[in-house]
Write a protein that binds this DNA or RNA. Structure first.
Length: 874
RNA sequence: GGGUCCAUAGCUCAGUUGGUUAGAGCGCUACCUUGACAUGGUAGAGGUCACAGGUUCGAGCCCUGUUGGACCCACCA
C-alpha cells in the first residue's frame, strides 16, 4: 500500500485523475440499454474565459450527472459553446482596433469573419480546458457549437418553417438601435436605467403670430429637428386656442400641426408634447394614429442626417448642445430644469440606444408563447425554485414581437433571398438558384444575421440532431434538467420552450433549475471594475477544484445569492483534507482488510451504520430536490462529526484499535467506502484518488462508476444507535464539566451515572469505551437513591439521568451553590409548564404528543426539585 | 407605475407542513505539539429572530401594517 502524504495536494492529483476518466471513457453516454438522464450544458460564450458563474453551473450540473450516473442511468451531459453574436463580434473588433487600428470594414466581411473564427478557436480551447479543470464529466464526443454545421442546418430549417407559417415576418417598426454596435436590438437587450438629465422648455411660435407660442418641455431637444407635430390634451384649457392651428418648428422654420391626444399628461412639464415619430416609441404610436409623417433624423451611428439641415453631421450629444445654444440665441429658449429619466442602453456596450424606425425581421412570439405557457401551467415543465414561475408567466403573457435580425457579420445569415427582377422574397434552407416566381437568377441574400438567442433557443433540438430524427434525439429529448441562471430565463429558457413546443410538439426539458447569482462576500455583484472578481482558476490552483465545488454546492441555496468568501472556501478545503486524513488513518490500520466483517455485537458499529443510512436517505432526497446546499451540509456533518469526531475517536482508544485490527473488523473501511461514493458527485477528484487506495472496492475500479449508496449496507440498528447516542450525551456532559472547571486532559476524574436499571443496562456494553472517552479513572453505574451521598460532586443532567463528576484534588468550585441555583431554575421552569398545562383547552387543542411531552417534563421537574430540596436542605 | 424576494449570533447564512432549551460555518475567548489531520482537538462566550399589531394553548414560521434593503418588468415627454 502506497503511503499517503499527511496533506491532500490537489495539484498532484486532479489532472491525472481527469485523464484516467477520459481514458476509461466513463463520460460517454453509450450505455444505451440503461435509462437515460440528460443535461445540456448552457453553452458558454466564446468571448474569453469562464468566470465563477460558469463554475457554479458546471459544478451543479456535474453533481447531478455524476449522481445519476452512479445511480445507474445512461447519463449524458452534453457540452458546447455559443457563438454569442454581438458579444464576440465586439471583442474581436476591439482587439482588431487596439492591435491594428483597423475596423471590421477595413478588413471586409470575409476576412473579418476569418479573424472571428480564429478567436473562437482560441477561446474555445481555453474554455474546454477550464471545464476539465472543474472536473466536469461531460461527453466530449458530443461537443457542439451554436454555429457549427448541424446547428446551422437546424437554424435554417427553423427559420424557413416559421417563415412559411407566417410566424416570421419582415416589418418596418420602431426598434431599439445601438449606434455603437450599429444594429437593431431586441427589447431584452436594452437595459433601462435612471440617468440625470434636464428638461428643456422650448418655444414653438404660432404660425402668423410670432408673439404667441406653445412652450414644449423635452428631455431631447436635438430631436426637434425631426418633429412633425406638437400634441396637447384635448381638455387642457390653456391650449384651447391652439387647437387645429399650426406652429413653426424652431430653427427649422418647418410648419407643423398642433394635434389633440389624450395620451398627453396635462400635469407633466408644460402639458405640451413635441412629437418625433421617428425617434420615440410613444411619438411613433401617436404619429401613426394621426397619420403624421415619420422623419428619420439619425444615421446608423446616431449622427444627424440631411433631415437636420445645417446640423447635419453632428452627433446626438453635440447636436443637443448646439441646438440649445441656437435656441437661446433665437430667443426661443424658455428655461431648463433638472430632471432624471429612464434611459435605455445597449446591454453589451452600455451605449444609449436610439429608438428608430427600421425594417427588421420579427417572430410572432405571442403565437409561440401559448403552448409554452400551458406547459408550465400543466407542470409538464417544473420550474425550481417555484417562485420563478410567476416571473415566467408574467413575461410570457405580455410577450411582444421578437426582433431577430441583427446588422452584424458574426452569426447565422438570414436564409432569405430577394429577387432582383420581381422583388419576390423567398426563404429556403439551401441557397436558391432562381426566383420561385419569375425564374430570374439575380438573387441577393439578406445581409443580416440572426439574434444569437435564435440559435441558442434551438439548443435542445440542434444538439441532438434535429431536424433529423436521430437516435440521440429519440433517446435524449426531452432532457431532464435545464440548469441555468435566472438572468437568462427570458433570453433563453423561454425561447427554448417556445421553439421546442412548436417544432417537437413536446417540452424540451422536464425541470428548469435556476441557480442563484454568485456575488462577493459583501453581496456585491462581481465586476472587473470593482476588482472583486473571484477567478475560479485561481481558487482551483490554490485550494483545489474540490474545495471550490464543495463551496459552490454548500452555498447554492434556493432564492438567495451565493456569497463567496475566501474563508468559506478555506473551510471546505479543510473538509477535503479531513476526509483525506480520515482515509489515511483507516488505511494505516485496516489497509490489509480484504473481507467484509462487521461485528454487530459492537454497538459503535451498529450506530455508525445507522447514521450512514440516514445520511444516504437524506442526501438522495436532497439532491432529488436540487438542495445542493443541504446535501453538502449533510455530508459534511456525517463525515466530520459522526465519522471522524466520534466513530474514529471511539475506535482509536488503546486496546480497541488493536482488537479491531486483530479481528479484521471492516466497519471503518466499509463506511469510508460508502462515504467516498456519497461524496463523489460533489468532490470527485479527492474521492477518486482515495478510492484507488482502498483495499475493498466491492464493485468498481472507479468510484465515478461505482453505485451510489441508496440502500442500507446491512440494516438499521436503532438499539445500537440509542445506546451510542446516550453514550455521546454522557461524554459531552462530562467534557463540559471538565471544561468548565479547567480540568486538564491528562487529569482523570471519577464519573458516576445515576439511572434506573433500564438505562443502566444500556451502558453496560459501553463501560470501557465511556470511561476512555470521558477520561475517567473510574466509571460507575449507580442507583438514583445513592446520589445523595455524592451531593458535593459536580453534577450534569442528561435526559432522565444524573451524572456526578468527582474532580481531582484542587480543582473545581462550589457544588452546593450550583445545586441551589439549579433548584431556583427548576422551580421557575416548573411554574411555566404547570401554567401551560393548566390553561384551558390546551389538552384539547394541542397534539397529544406535545401534551405528553409537557406532562413528562413536568414530572421530571418535580422529581428533580425534590432531589435538589433534599441535597440543599431548602 | 406593476411584480417578486429579503431582514435570525460580530460576519455570511440554514431553520421543510406553527410544537422541548432557535442551528451551522467563519470569526472571537481559554486550554491542548494526544501516535489520521494545527487545513487539527476540547470547552466556552455571543440572539428582544427589523418594528407594531393580530390569529393560536403555543409564532422565527401564519395574517395586517410600518421601516429598511435587493431584484425583475414597464415607451411617460
Amino acid at each position: 500500500m502506497k503511503e499517503l502524504p499527511p496533506q491532500y495536494l490537489p495539484q498532484d492529483v486532479e489532472k491525472r485523475i481527469y485523464e484516467q476518466w477520459m481514458t476509461a471513457k466513463i463520460f460517454e453516454a453509450s450505455e444505451t440499454h440503461k435509462k437515460s438522464y440528460t443535461i445540456l450544458m448552457p453553452p458558454p460564450n466564446v468571448t474569453g474565459v469562464l468566470h465563477i458563474g460558469h463554475a457554479l453551473t458546471c459544478t451543479l450540473e456535474d453533481v447531478l450527472t455524476r449522481w445519476k450516473r452512479m445511480l445507474g442511468f445512461n447519463a449524458l451531459w452534453l457540452p458546447g459553446t455559443d457563438h454569442a453574436g454581438i458579444a464576440t463580434q465586439m471583442v474581436v473588433e476591439r482587439k482588431l482596433f487596439s492591435e491594428e487600428k483597423k475596423s471590421r470594414h477595413d478588413l471586409g466581411r470575409e476576412e473579418f469573419l476569418k479573424r472571428v473564427w480564429q478567436w473562437k478557436e482560441e477561446s474555445q480551447t481555453t474554455i474546454h480546458s477550464q471545464i476539465k479543470m472543474l472536473g466536469s464529466s461531460v461527453d466530449w464526443t458530443r461537443l457542439r457549437f451554436t454555429l457549427d454545421d448541424q446547428a446551422s442546418r437546424a437554424v435554417r430549417e427553423c427559420f424557413v418553417r416559421l417563415f412559411h407559417e407566417n410566424l416570421i415576418y419582415r416589418d418596418e417598426a420602431m426598434i431599439s438601435w445601438c449606434p455603437r454596435c450599429r444594429t437593431a436590438l431586441s427589447d431584452l437587450e436594452v437595459k433601462f436605467g435612471e440617468r440625470k438629465g434636464k428638461l428643456w422648455h422650448i418655444r414653438y411660435a404660432l404660425k402668423g403670430d410670432a408673439k404667441k407660442f406653445l412652450v414644449v418641455a423635452t428631455t431631447r431637444p436635438e430631436t426637434l429637428l425631426g418633429d412633425t407635430a406638437v400634441a396637447v390634451h384635448p381638455d387642457d384649457k390653456r391650449y384651447k386656442e391652439f387647437h387645429g392651428k399650426t406652429v413653426v418648428l424652431p430653427l427649422m422654420g418647418r410648419e407643423i400641426p398642433v394635434i389633440c391626444d389624450e395620451y398627453v399628461d396635462k400635469e407633466f412639464g408644460t402639458g405640451a408634447l413635441k412629437i418625433t415619430p421617428g425617434h420615440d416609441p410613444n411619438d411613433y404610436a401617436i404619429g401613426k394614429k394621426h397619420k403624421l409623417p415619420i422623419l428619420t433624423l439619425f444615421d446608423d451611428g446616431a449622427r444627424i442626417n440631411e433631415v437636420g439641415g445645417i446640423y447635419k453631421g453632428l452627433s446626438r450629444e453635440k447636436g443637443r448642445d448646439t441646438i440649445v445654444e441656437d435656441l437661446k440665441k433665437a430667443g426661443l429658449f424658455e428655461k431648463e430644469q433638472d430632471h432624471s429619466s429612464n434611459v435605455g442602453a445597449c446591454d453589451r456596450c452600455q451605449t444609449v440606444v436610439e429608438p428608430r424606425v427600421s425594417r427588421q425581421w420579427f417572430v410572432k412570439a405571442e403565437v409561440l408563447a401559448a403552448p409554452a405557457i400551458k406547459a408550465v401551467e400543466d407542470k409538464r415543465i417544473r420550474i425550481v425554485p417555484e417562485e420563478w414561475e410567476k416571473t415566467y408567466f408574467n413575461w410570457m403573457r405580455n410577450i411582444r414581437p421578437w426582433c431577430i435580425s441583427r446588422q452584424l457579420w458574426w452569426g447565422h445569415r438570414i436564409p432569405v433571398w430577394y429577387c432582383g427582377s420581381c422583388s419576390h422574397v423567398m426563404s429556403a434552407t439551401e441557397t436558391p438558384k432562381a426566383c420561385d416566381k419569375c425564374r430570374g437568377t439575380a438573387l441577393t441574400q439578406d445581409e443580416d444575421v440572426l439574434d444569437t438567442w435564435f440559435s441558442s433557443g434551438l439548443w435542445p433540438l440542434s444538439t441532438l440532431g434535429w431536424p433529423d430524427e436521430t437516435e440521440d434525439l429519440k433517446r435524449f429529448y426531452p432532457s431532464d434538467v435545464m440548469e441555468t441562471g435566472f438572468d437568462i430565463l427570458f433570453f433563453w429558457v423561454a425561447r427554448m420552450v417556445m421553439l421546442g413546443m412548436h417544432f417537437k410538439k413536446e417540452i424540451p426539458f422536464h425541470t428548469v433549475y435556476l441557480h442563484p447569482m454568485v456575488r462577493d462576500e459583501f453581496g456585491q455583484k462581481m465586476s472587473k471594475t470593482k476588482g472583486n472578481v473571484k477567478d475560479p482558476l485561481e481558487i482551483i490552483h490554490t485550494k483545489g477544484a474540490d474545495a471550490l465545488r464543495f463551496t459552490l454546492c454548500a452555498m447554492a441555496v434556493h432564492g438567495r445569492d451565493v456569497l463567496l468568501s475566501d474563508a468559506r472556501i478555506e473551510g471546505y478545503r479543510n473538509f477535503v483534507n479531513k476526509l483525506w486524513n480520515a482515509t489515511r488513518f483507516v488505511i494505516m490500520h485496516f489497509g490489509d482488510v480484504t473481507r467484509s466483517n462487521v461485528r454487530l455485537t459492537d454497538p459503535v458499529n451498529g450506530w455508525i451504520l445507522t447514521r450512514l443510512n440516514e445520511t444516504k436517505r437524506e442526501m438522495n432526497a436532497q439532491l432529488e430536490q436540487f438542495r445542493f446546499d443541504e446535501a453538502a451540509t449533510t455530508l459534511y456533518h456525517f463525515v466530520w462529526n459522526d465519522y471522524c469526531d466520534y466513530f474514529i475517536e471511539f475506535i482509536k482508544r488503546k486496546g480497541e484499535i488493536d482488537s479491531r485490527k486483530g479481528l479484521k473488523d471492516s466497519t471503518a473501511l466499509e463506511v469510508l467506502e460508502e462515504i467516498l461514493r456519497l461524496a463523489h458527485p460533489i468532490i470527485p477528484f479527492v474521492t477518486e484518488e482515495l478510492w484507488s487506495h482502498l483495499p475493498l472496492k466491492s464493485d468498481a475500479k472507479c468510484v465515478a462508476v461505482a453505485q451510489y449508496p441508496v440502500k442500507p449496507l446491512i440494516g438499521d440498528f436503532p438499539e445500537a444507535q440509542a445506546q451510542v447516542g446516550k453514550m455521546i450525551e454522557v461524554m459531552n456532559a462530562v467534557r463540559r464539566v471538565r471544561g468548565e472547571n479547567n480540568v486538564a486532559n491528562n487529569q482523570t476524574v471519577e464519573v458516576r451515572v445515576f439511572a434506573e436499571e433500564k438505562v443502566k443496562a444500556v451502558f453496560r456494553p459501553l463501560m470501557d469505551c465511556l470511561a476512555d472517552v470521558t477520561g475517567a479513572s473510574r466509571l460507575t453505574l449507580l442507583d438514583p437513591s445513592e446520589e445523595l451521598a455524592f451531593a458535593n460532586e459536580k453534577l450534569a443532567v442528561v435526559g432522565s439521568m444524573n451524572i456526578r463528576v468527582a474532580l481531582p484534588q484542587g480543582v473545581g468550585g462550589d457544588a452546593a451553590g450550583d445545586a441551589l441555583r439549579e433548584l431556583q431554575e427548576a422551580r421557575a421552569a416548573l411554574k411555566k409548564v404547570t401554567e401551560l398545562l393548566g390553561r384551558a383547552g390546551f389538552a384539547d387543542k394541542a397534539p397529544a404528543a406535545v401534551v405528553l411531552k409537557e406532562r413528562e417534563k413536568e414530572q421530571m421537574l418535580r422529581v428533580r426539585i425534590e432531589q435538589l430540596e433534599k441535597t440543599t436542605g431548602k
